[in-house]
């Protein structure tokens, strides 16, 4: 059976991974290669790196940086930020990106997506759509102006599907960095209208939010940014909780936390003294491939 995915989103602000709060405040997290190395070792399913400053500076994502950081990535890497030309996509794929993410150009240059899908196949193109909620429903949010546009969600979905994207990364801006959990209603609405995989983002607080998301919607992946950076083994501990709650997901890291218990916030609880005592004598060999 196809497994659900946990995807880490790395917003790059002038080349540094940041924590984003409501798309207008940013706190530094660290170097992307360090984040990618850890996430990869903790068994994340995919990584999305998006340069959120490129478009504002009228430039593209830093190709050399992507080439360097992709060396730490043994899972699929999606890259976005200021992609304007098909040549940018050629170069990114040569630099170790596996998919590309288009946000702004979905509206200003949908031809780019059609061209990319024709050249690299629809599976290579991800549309990243920032959505926010107001009294009239869901509308597209422009991260460039920090304003809600008058484009309704339906219109954005129509353009994206019409131009042939392979996946939709839906970012709930009103939940971004709030720890309020995923907007279930939004993702159900999107899933009912499209037949491509939907990647849900915005508001994850802990693994219980992801369990809730997978139980109540048909999304293919739960994405999170902030939440993965602040605790050791955040990916594999979350996956353990998901598996314990009957969500089909991949967990193959050596540390699989099968004998651990968790608190109501998804935090790892200390093992009993007896168990710890026994662990002292367990030799763990590194797997040699």
């Amino acid at each position: 059976m196809l497994k659900k995915r946990l995807i880490a989103i790395l917003p790059l602000f002038n080349g540094i991974v940041v924590q984003s709060i409501n798309f207008n405040r940013y706190l530094p997290v660290g170097k992307p290669e360090v984040c990618i190395d850890f996430l990869n070792k903790w068994g994340v399913d995919e990584i999305v790196a998006i340069d959120i400053t490129a478009r504002r500076k009228h430039s593209t994502v830093n190709f050399e940086q992507i080439k360097r950081v992709s060396e730490y990535c043994f899972v699929p890497l999606t890259v976005g930020g200021g992609i304007n030309e098909i040549e940018d996509i050629d170069r990114l794929l040569q630099c170790g990106a596996d998919k590309i993410s288009i946000n702004n150009n979905l509206f200003s240059n949908p031809d780019l997506i059609s061209k990319a899908a024709k050249k690299y196949g629809d599976q290579c193109v991800v549309a990243s759509i920032d959505v926010t909620k107001n009294e009239n429903g869901y509308y597209i949010y422009s991260y460039l102006s920090n304003l809600v546009t008058n484009i309704p969600l339906d219109e954005a979905l129509r353009i994206a599907i019409g131009s042939g994207v392979g996946e939709l990364l839906i970012n709930a801006v009103h939940r971004d960095g709030t720890y309020k959990g995923y907007d279930i209603e939004l993702f159900n609405e999107v899933c009912s209208k499209v037949r491509v995989p939907v990647l849900a983002c915005g508001g994850a607080k802990n693994a219980y939010c992801m369990i809730d998301l997978f139980n109540k919607t048909n999304v293919s992946a739960a994405c999170a940014g902030n939440f993965f950076h602040f605790s050791e083994h955040s990916v594999n501990t979350s996956k353990r909780l998901l598996i314990d709650n009957k969500i089909g997901i991949r967990l193959e890291t050596h540390a699989n936390y099968c004998l651990n218990s968790f608190d109501s916030n998804g935090r790892l609880l200390k093992k009993s003294d007896e168990t710890l005592e026994k662990l002292l004598y367990l030799k763990i060999e590194k797997e040699i491939i």
């Binding site: 995915r5 399913d45 293919s220």
Partner: peptide, 13 residues
């Protein structure tokens, strides 16, 4: 069939 989305993306056995 409708419940299987296309493209087929992700980890599968």
């Amino acid at each position: 069939s409708p419940e299987f989305l296309v493209p087929h993306v992700g980890w599968n056995n």
